[in-house]
């Protein structure tokens, strides 16, 4: 199987990696670059735990080939916070208790962050629709939705 050289910007840093054709973006992030904030829940596009931003838009990184990411910009959950300051969605998630085991949280943060970028004042229905691809087995979603509302107020 052929290997491909991939140049990507991840959370603002340039990286060059060599990947086999069948490696997904999720595996490249976790297994080569050690960005283990991106989680592997299902490897099938269902759960959203692997959600990252690819050129500013959320994708399931388990459903994207690493080789397709040559020349792109990627933001993972590690890239949301500034040096000393959490992003408002991270702060709101802590304040509202939107985290239990935390496995879904990286994906939820990325999806919510992207939602607030494209729609700074989402209705509850819009929040639910934006998070439909992020499954959470713990919280029952209510506090996650409250967190997104709170973050909208703050930002």
């Amino acid at each position: 199987m052929a290997f491909h050289k991939v140049n990507v910007t991840i959370n603002g840093e340039m990286e060059q990696v060599v990947v086999p054709s069948n490696m997904t973006l999720m595996r490249m992030l976790r297994e080569i670059l050690a960005f283990t904030g991106t989680k592997n829940g299902c490897s099938a596009g269902e759960c959203g735990a692997c959600t990252v931003l690819l050129n500013g838009e959320p994708v399931n990184s388990c459903m994207v080939l690493a080789v397709e990411c040559d020349g792109t910009e990627i933001i993972t959950v590690e890239g949301l916070a500034g040096d000393k300051q959490l992003d408002p969605i991270q702060e709101a998630m802590i304040q509202e208790g939107g985290v239990q085991c935390g496995f879904c949280t990286p994906g939820i943060l990325i999806s919510s962050y992207a939602l607030l970028k494209r729609n700074p004042n989402p209705s509850e229905d819009e929040i639910r629709e934006a998070l439909v691809g992020n499954l959470c087995r713990c919280t029952g979603y209510v506090r996650i939705i409250e967190s997104v509302k709170e973050a909208a107020k703050r930002s």
């Binding site: 838009e57 994708v59 399931n60 691809g133």
Partner: peptide, 9 residues
């Protein structure tokens, strides 16, 4: 169809 992040692809 599916979810926002799946529809990006």
């Amino acid at each position: 169809v599916a979810s926002y992040q799946l529809r990006t692809r």
